[in-house]
């Protein structure tokens, strides 16, 4: 009987791999939870695309500032030492290679590190890309947090992405409910298995060859 990691445990596991002093951009969804699990003794500074370094947690409803939002259009706070700037400076931080780590959700990620997380390419769908293509090309380390399979059991770690790419060959590490997986020159490699999960189970739920730990 498998157990694996829940959403918070996936986020906490990813947080363990972010070095002290990192400038970090968190995507919407499970990646947002990473901010709750900063390891003891480490300091991260959070960047939000709409113009702030030093983003803090959401405010109480009656303490929100209508001019203080994050890129997900949610109300946030500013920590001591925060800075505000305009969009071109904000994306210079991203595109100029100044942000250390970006943690993103995804629809698919391939064995060579391609990521597809902005569009299903379905006819009639309204395309919306936001800052995703800038982040994957500009940030030094791209981490992905995702369930290992879709709700219908399809692998999200695949040989080739069938959805339109956000960027090619950019992902370095993937955190799923089953395992931590690296993208290596030889393809996917399991770094760590979640509690109660066997390599064989991970292999059977991965849509591409995957190497065991070690």
């Amino acid at each position: 009987m498998s157990t694996g990691w829940n959403r918070e445990e996936m986020a906490a596991r990813a947080a363990q791999d972010i070095p002290d002093g990192s400038y970090v951009n968190l995507g919407i969804g499970i990646p947002e939870l990473v901010a709750k699990f900063v390891p003891e003794g480490r300091e991260f500074i959070y960047h939000t695309e709409n113009g702030m370094l030093g983003m803090g947690p959401p405010p109480a409803e009656d303490e929100r500032d209508l001019d203080l939002m994050n890129a997900g259009k949610k109300y946030v706070t500013a920590v001591p030492g925060a800075a505000y700037f305009h969009h071109a400076d904000s994306f210079s931080m991203i595109r100029g290679g100044h942000i250390d780590v970006c943690v993103l959700g995804t629809m698919q990620v391939s064995a060579n590190g391609d990521i597809a997380n902005w569009s299903t390419g379905a006819p009639g769908a309204i395309p919306a890309v936001g800052g995703a293509m800038d982040l994957v090309q500009g940030v030094k380390h791209i981490f992905v947090i995702t369930q290992h399979t879709t709700k219908t059991g399809e692998p999200k770690l695949v040989e080739h992405c069938s959805y339109p790419l956000t960027g090619p060959g950019v992902v370095s590490r993937i955190y799923t409910d089953l395992a931590v997986v690296d993208v290596t020159p030889a393809g996917f490699r399991v770094v760590e298995l979640a509690p109660g999960i066997t390599f064989e189970e991970v292999e059977s739920k991965t849509g591409a060859p995957i190497l065991p730990p070690g």
Binding site: A88, F91, I94, G124, I126, A128, V129, G131, D134
Partner: peptide, 19 residues
């Protein structure tokens, strides 16, 4: 309006738009 074909869209990544 977009689904009805009554408005055009040019989609530009956010950083490219700003730059």
């Amino acid at each position: 309006l977009y689904k009805a074909g009554k408005i055009e869209l040019e989609l530009v990544p956010q950083g490219t738009l700003a730059e």
